[in-house]
Design a protein around this nucleic acid. Structure first.
Lengths: 114, 114
DNA sequence: GTAACCAGTTTACTAATAGATACTAGTGTA
DNA sequence: TACACTAGTATCTATTAGTAAACTGGTTAC
């Protein structure tokens, strides 16, 4: 009986870890949130996401693309422009981010309020 | 105008990062979830959270205690037993974990289903 | 032609995270 | 007295994450 609960619990942990892995690291959420405000070019993101280096931005965008949260579009202009946007799937993070926000805000208040 | 939105966005990011920082790492969530199923002693947790080492468990529990998610109680028995439990505040993570679970599960299905 | 912008990549480094293993100090059991 | 269990700590190593700064190759504006 207790064994079954344990197994169930481990199985349930997998998707939770997945979600956390995708979002963790210093830069993924700032990038995602920046893209919530509209599609952006590489250099635009580099400027808006304060403190990020080109290397990290490049790497994180690739990760996000792999997980299909972000779409990379090469625009047929001269010179070529590259636009990054959230996929519909990326946008589905909104509720989760809101929940992170709500809890984090509560936490801030509690820690500061001591 | 655009500046104001950017500032607002950065301010909003802080609590989101806080929440993520507290939850990220390999072991914090497994420990929290184990404690959702009831109070546990150190060695119990070491056995239940598969793969964790004593060192990591010790460190993670301290972090969680610092953030007031977990309470450490030394029981007045002989030999001394130490019990870890979720605080009321720790329990307030339930909704957030559920949201992580829901999103993570969707993600799993999408990735596997390809 | 040269200076500047775009979309990155490369190299070299440091810092943070995690793992393996051994160890301590106290208690309980046979 | 020997062995095992509890609640950890200490030391060392490996891996991963992140930073800094230079560099590429193409484009456009002066």
């Amino acid at each position: 009986m207790a064994e079954k609960i344990k197994e169930e619990c481990e199985k349930r942990l997998l998707p939770v870890r997945d979600a956390l892995d995708i979002l963790s690291g210093k830069w993924k959420l700032p990038i995602i949130v920046a893209l919530f405000f509209g599609n952006k070019r590489f250099k635009e993101l580099e400027r808006e996401v304060k403190g990020i280096t080109g290397k990290m931005l490049s790497k994180e965008l690739k990760d996000l693309e792999t997980n299909q949260l972000v779409k990379r579009t090469v625009l047929d202009t001269s010179p070529v422009a590259v636009e990054y946007s959230l996929t519909k799937y990326g946008k589905s993070l909104e509720k989760l981010i809101t929940e992170l926000y709500k809890w984090g805000e509560k936490h801030r208040k509690m820690i500061i309020g001591k």
